Computed example of a mutant assay.
Amino acid sequence: MRLNRRSFCGSLVGGVLTAKAARADEAIIVTDMAGRTVRLPAPPKRIVLLEARDIVSMALLHPDPAALVVGWAATDRIDSKLLQERFTQGRDIALVGKQSPDTISIEGLASLSPDLVVANFYMAPHGSDDLLVTRLESFGIPVVFSDTSSNTVAGETLDDDPVANIIGHMQMWGAVLGVADRVRDYAGFFETQMQRVQRCVAGAPTVTTYLEIQSTAEDCCWAAGNKVWGSLLEHAGGKNLPGVTEPWFQKLQLEHLLSTPHAVYIASGGGWASDIRPAIGPGLDPAKGREGLERVIRRTGFDLLPSVRDGRVHGIWTGLISVPPLNILFIELAAKWLHPDRCAEIDPAATLAEINARFLSTPIEGPLWVSLQEA
């Protein structure tokens, strides 16, 4: 079923009531983000994450998610060494792979005796038919998909609106962890924040924006695609660069960027490779993040961009896009940056503070965003 903005908000709270907590010896049924129904003999206690950043979603629902995680892959994509250390709380979690599916050892993974493996379409691109999935299931290890985002048609999400998919993502984790009440609380909070943004951007002209998914001083120009990042931008009253046709990301020629007028430039950064990317993320010095933004706009031709000339240059931590339940922070930020007069009352810092106070036992420290011209 496809959800639009209105049906998404209307279904958030009601949908989560279908999940219920399971007893320690009771089988649970999980509907994953690929639409698969997976039976778990009991609530899992030994989980392997093929996408390590899923631990952030877990942390919004569980006080100590690392206690359940015995292995993970792609730890660099958490994009914050500080956050990784704080969520693990000193535990030694086995590394089962790096940032691509060809680095995963199926035998090594199976040797951890997991009772659940959580995958996505990036690490298991063929979904249910992926060799990794079929081998694990032949060993009696259940697999669920927490995300189906992909830059290929075959890996297209069931619903191309990531905001609509957030409810499914949280429901899935709520079922796995047996915390329907926590999902309900977060869903209500998310709905309230989304409605505020929708009110302030309603009727506003959309603002063309260059949203860059990989901002480095050495390379250009990796534009956000029309789905995932681009769809989140639409919820903030923006629109992607014309000419972008790929769903997740697309390499553009500098000439195309220079010939495409846009009002706002949003770069992405983080803790990984922060010497060439803007150092924006949990616990990082905002001055360093600002310096990183200044470096990327010194790339050839960027002084000719209207967004740069007008000083409408901003940067975000990648986790605001890559971790679904944190998407609300990106949407609020983009709404303020694209529509500063209409959305002046939106306060992403207050939203982050509420997320920390209500949902996270290990807070995510800001700033998670930087602007060259502070308001």
Rank of each mutant, 00 (worst) to 15 (best):
Val228Glu: 13
Gly15Trp: 09
His256Gly: 07
Ala375Glu: 15
Val197Thr: 04
Thr362Arg: 10
Val13Thr: 12
Val69Trp: 00
Val201Trp: 01
Ala357Gln: 14
Arg299Asp: 08
Ile276Gln: 13
Thr260Trp: 06
Thr152Val: 03
Ala267Gln: 08
Phe87Gly: 00
Ser215Ala: 13
Gly311Phe: 01
Ala24His: 13
Ala335Arg: 01
Gln250Pro: 12
Ala223Ser: 15
Arg196Leu: 14
Glu51Tyr: 07
Gly15Asp: 15
Leu136Glu: 01
Phe359Gly: 12
Lys336Asn: 13
Gln214Gly: 09
Gln84Ile: 09
Ala27Ile: 11
Pro348Val: 06
Thr318Lys: 01
Phe145Pro: 00
Leu50Val: 10
Gly269Phe: 01
Phe8Pro: 00
Thr152Arg: 10
Ser146Ala: 15
Pro247Val: 07
Ala52Cys: 13
Ser7Tyr: 05
Gly90Ile: 14
Leu368Ser: 04
Asp275Trp: 05
Gly10Arg: 13
Gly140Pro: 03
Ala204Leu: 11
Ile316Phe: 00
Asn151Trp: 03
Val163Leu: 12
Leu329Lys: 01
Lys239Phe: 00
Gly178Ser: 12
Ala287Lys: 11
Phe145Cys: 05
Leu333Asp: 01
Leu177Gln: 03
Asp341Pro: 07
Thr31Cys: 09
Ala217Ser: 09
Lys288Met: 14
Val370Gln: 00
Ile93His: 02
Met1Gln: 15
Leu304His: 12
Ser307Glu: 03
Ile167Lys: 02
Gly283Cys: 10
Thr152Ile: 08
Val197Asp: 02
Leu326Arg: 01
Arg290Pro: 05
Gln250Leu: 12
Trp317Leu: 00
Arg77Gly: 04
Gly319Lys: 00
